[in-house]
């Protein structure tokens, strides 16, 4: 009993951390520009695929493959932002939804063409396989690795957000865009930068999380709903909110699938509806 509870907490935490790393960029860019970017899941998926290709085809070491995927995805996202997204800033959300859904469809088609419709596995190096003893229990090494990397990312994000000039600018722009512009912050450039960073984080989460989420071309749509829930429940542009929402979602989903697998994703959607009705603007609305 205790054993299974610990397992659920551990697996839920690993899942939650992947969710957080992927969703946090979406939360910040949506808070900043109010742009409903449904293609965010596609960036995560691309990160996974590109990392796998670097590692498999080019023989890049595992620890280098994921960062390379991040850089590639960041570049792709900046190109898309400059050419397509930019034209719909301040427009209505329906057009943004549809433009990005169109991009997702094209992305799925391209990924199916390049990598095939079946699940692609990330080859984990031998030192991350097996189990690790944490004193009171043994845990899967790779998932422990995911959690540790995520903690490092969270600390870096927190530092960047709260302690650097760039973070201060982003917070100012999320809070009050006009005022931020008035004091001389270049919102457009700031947005491009955060957009690239957010996409890179999504790619990182996508690459790290393939062991948990799998990697098929429909990934971009399948998990999109999860990322959106994190953003909506957590509140736009809030790191703390995204973190809390990821934790709840990750643990509830893991527990639901463990105890009542017949209900599938029933619980997280029920919880989402309740949370959104309780706090329509999310936990930490700005």
């Amino acid at each position: 009993m205790i054993n299974s509870l610990v397992s659920i907490a551990f697996d839920g935490l690993a899942f939650a951390m992947v969710l957080f790393i992927i969703s946090v960029g979406l939360s910040v860019t949506m808070g900043l520009m109010g742009f409903v970017n449904l293609a965010h899941g596609m960036f995560a998926m691309l990160g996974g695929y590109i990392a796998v290709s670097f590692i498999r085809e080019l023989g890049v070491p595992f620890l280098l493959g994921a960062p390379l995927g991040c850089v590639a995805v960041a570049l792709i996202s900046v190109v898309l932002e400059r050419t397509l997204y930019r034209r719909l800033y301040g427009g209505d959300e329906l057009q943004q939804v549809l433009l990005t859904i169109g991009l997702v469809f094209m992305g799925i088609a391209v990924c199916t063409f390049l990598w095939g419709p079946l699940n692609v596995q990330l080859d984990v190096p031998s030192y991350l396989k097996g189990q690790v003893d944490l004193g009171f229990r043994r845990f899967p090494t790779y998932r422990t690795f995911i959690i540790l990397v995520s903690f490092a990312v969270i600390i870096a994000l927190w530092y960047g957000f709260e302690r650097t000039l760039l973070g201060a600018k982003v917070r100012a722009a999320v809070d009050n865009q006009r005022m931020a512009e008035t004091v001389g912050i270049n919102i457009r450039r700031l947005f491009t930068l955060t957009f690239a960073l957010g996409s890179a984080l999504a790619a990182l989460g996508g690459a790290l999380g393939t062991e948990i989420l799998g990697l098929t071309p429909t990934y971009a749509l399948e998990y999109l709903v999860y990322f959106l829930i994190v953003v909506a429940v957590g509140g736009l542009g809030s790191l703390r909110g995204a973190f809390a929402a990821s934790l709840i979602l990750g643990v509830v989903d893991t527990a639901g699938k463990y105890y009542l697998p017949a209900f599938g994703a029933f619980f997280i959607f029920a919880v989402t509806i309740i949370l959104l009705l309780w706090r329509p603007q999310g936990f930490y609305a700005r």
Partner: peptide, 28 residues
């Protein structure tokens, strides 16, 4: 009656969640 109290992303998510909830229910 419930979802129309909200707007924007929240409304989008609520409509989406209701559909998936019904689908899970039908599946079960």
């Amino acid at each position: 009656a419930v979802i129309l109290y909200t707007r924007g992303l929240t409304l989008l998510m609520l409509t989406l969640a209701v559909t998936i909830l019904l689908q899970e229910l039908a599946n079960e």
